[in-house]
């Protein structure tokens, strides 16, 4: 399979534009439908305005093995409020009504997609305006399942590279990858440990020997200062757990969102974006 044909997409255009402006990418993750569909839609739709360059929307799953407590809980909230895979695709369609340039990547686990049907899913992704996929539990060994059909349909396939990905695996992990590479800066699950900047510099340098695609670094970034210092070492940063934690902090005891939730989340994101811009 050749991913080289995906050269003019929302993702490639975004990274090209950032490069021209000498800026780093700010990638924001949140779970689709957290805490409910309508709130989630206003959260997602306001992200570009708040300074996000690329959006990752999580497809909620009952058993998100690779995620820490924060993202697990956000998945549970979304499921409880009735979120499904078809509704996640609807969320992207809603977003695309007013924004045709911000790249959107769906992130999730394979089982909901497998149940939905791979061909149908890939088709719905392209027609609703999804640009790429990160499916956590599909390693290169299982590329036939979804990676190959997704590439054929013109979707980017983005994979996680971790500190435990040694030289013997790195080529197979990067094979088929396009758009950007997502480097997980810590061993472990999302949101639990803080990425260490020294280590990132070495890791990114090593990755550069293997790929020309932009490298975004994530896992454990919370503060504007931390975001900026990581951004200086890479092509972009990803923030997820800190955002969903903030969503949680703006729910009342019954799990209903405060009226100001979108403003609060967007102003936090604005702070991060302003800091990343200086990187």
């Amino acid at each position: 399979m050749n991913s080289g044909s995906l050269t003019d997409t929302r993702i490639t255009r975004k990274f090209a534009q950032l490069k021209k402006q000498n800026r780093k990418a700010f990638v924001a993750f949140l779970t689709g439908g957290d805490p409910d569909y309508d709130t989630s839609r206003s959260l997602v739709c306001g992200l570009p305005q708040a300074g996000v360059d690329l959006i990752e929307v999580g497809i909620p799953f009952s058993d998100p093995m690779a995620d820490g407590p924060a993202i697990q809980a956000s998945s549970q909230r979304a499921l409880k409020a009735g979120m499904t895979l078809p509704k996640t695709l609807q969320l992207i369609r809603d977003f695309r009504k007013n924004d045709d340039s911000t790249p959107i990547v769906l992130m999730g686990y394979y089982n909901p997609i497998y149940r939905y049907g791979v061909d149908r899913f890939v088709h719905e992704c392209t027609s609703s305006g999804v640009d790429g996929l990160i499916i956590v539990d599909l390693p290169p060994e299982e590329d036939k399942e979804l990676c190959d059909p997704a590439l054929t349909a013109g979707l980017h396939w983005i994979r996680l590279v971790t500190p435990s990905t040694d030289d013997s695996r790195i080529e197979s992990v990067l094979h088929n990858v396009s758009g950007f590479v997502y480097y997980i800066a810590v061993l472990g699950v999302t949101g639990t440990r803080r990425a260490i900047t020294d280590h990132i510099e070495i890791a990114v340098a090593r990755l550069r020997e293997y790929t020309d695609f932009p490298i975004a670094v994530g896992f454990g970034i919370k503060t504007p200062e931390h975001a900026r210092s990581v951004a200086e070492k890479a092509d972009g940063i990803v923030i997820g757990s800190a955002i969903v934690d903030l969503i949680k902090a703006n729910l009342d005891n019954d799990g209903l969102p405060n009226s100001g939730i979108a403003e609060t989340v967007h102003s936090y994101i604005r702070e991060i974006a302003d800091s990343v811009i200086q990187a």
């Binding site: 394979y110 539990d137 994979r159 061993l187």
Partner: peptide, 20 residues
């Protein structure tokens, strides 16, 4: 060799687990 019994089995894990 890749751990499949027909269509079943396999190694559907995150990259963090794969080397392990």
């Amino acid at each position: 060799d890749t751990g499949h019994f027909g269509i079943y089995g396999g190694r559907f894990v995150a990259e963090t687990l794969m080397p392990l």
